[in-house]
Design a protein around this nucleic acid. Structure first.
Lengths: 150, 150
DNA sequence: TTTCGATGGTTACAAATGAAACCAGTTTGG
DNA sequence: CCAAACTGGTTTCATTTGTAACCATCGAAA
């Protein structure tokens, strides 16, 4: 009978990896700032772009609009961001971080970068285990990577 | 001011990729069999191993025991699996797919494999965009992969 | 201008989730 | 033999999430 090896099934592996990484990173902004993931993404988006609408935020960070709406509401409650109604379109609000929000963002950036760096280093140490696994999954089936840029 | 580009932040990219893939694949078992992800993983684990305990299932497929418990309960309700109490340890139950459960599993395996293959192909078509991105993220910082097996 | 479909954003409700409490059974150490 | 610590598994409860309905506004077409 044909069986499926879950442990090496690409969607499963990807999910597991991402979940583990994401959980670990979430500790940083959760422990430090008491943020949820949508809130962190919102903070991050605004910190990066200065000002954005809720829709833009959703696009950039791949969040459903309800998530954005809730995250924005919470950050507003904390006075980490303010809303400014659009001049021409009264449905739209432009969001911007307050001083406090910006301070939080500034605190997070180096932590995030450090986390990423460490993650990359860890992967190197483990002989790029993760990377290798993904590649393995890709190579296993199909022809050997043809025009690979690697 | 130092900013963080969310779109290229490794944890974020990983999560997004995995989420997209997982969601797409979930359509297969959800539309087809009306299964949730934990239920699919349970079905998959049992199909693969024949018989397992709830704890083993949790280990194999990285699910919290409450998820396992609920998934097992649901599959049992559908009569897709049966529980057999362990001889020596009366806390433990051995789970096994019924005919119906096995039939569902058999139906899923080729679909899952096809999905994976298609996924891999799609990546190839896009010049291994995903793979490339991950690698790029890894290369960007740090020294060029030293003992890379690639 | 009025109406109708699309769009920005919020809210309500149901389902999925995680943490912690819990129950039953098992092991360990006195 | 007994109490305490532990383990397999379930349940409870609060939180998070997604879907869909919703409100307000806008743009286009009649």
């Amino acid at each position: 009978m044909e069986i499926l090896e879950l442990e090496s099934f690409l969607p499963y592996r990807l999910y597991r990896l991402a979940d583990a990484v994401s959980r670990e990173f979430s500790k940083v902004y959760s422990d430090r700032l008491g943020l949820s993931r949508p809130e962190w993404r919102t903070l991050s988006g605004l910190g990066q772009h200065g000002t954005m609408t809720a829709t833009e935020l959703g696009k950039q960070s791949a969040m459903h609009k309800t998530k954005v709406s809730r995250a924005v509401a919470e950050l507003e409650r904390r006075r980490w961001l303010t809303r400014t109604p659009d001049e021409n379109d009264r449905r739209v609000e432009h969001l911007m971080l307050t001083k406090a929000g910006l301070a939080a963002y500034r605190e997070m950036v180096p932590l995030a970068k450090a986390f990423e760096r460490e993650l990359i280093n860890r992967m190197k140490l483990h002989q790029q285990a993760v990377l290798f696994d993904v590649i393995y999954s890709l190579e296993r089936k199909g022809t050997p990577s043809p025009s690979s840029t690697i």
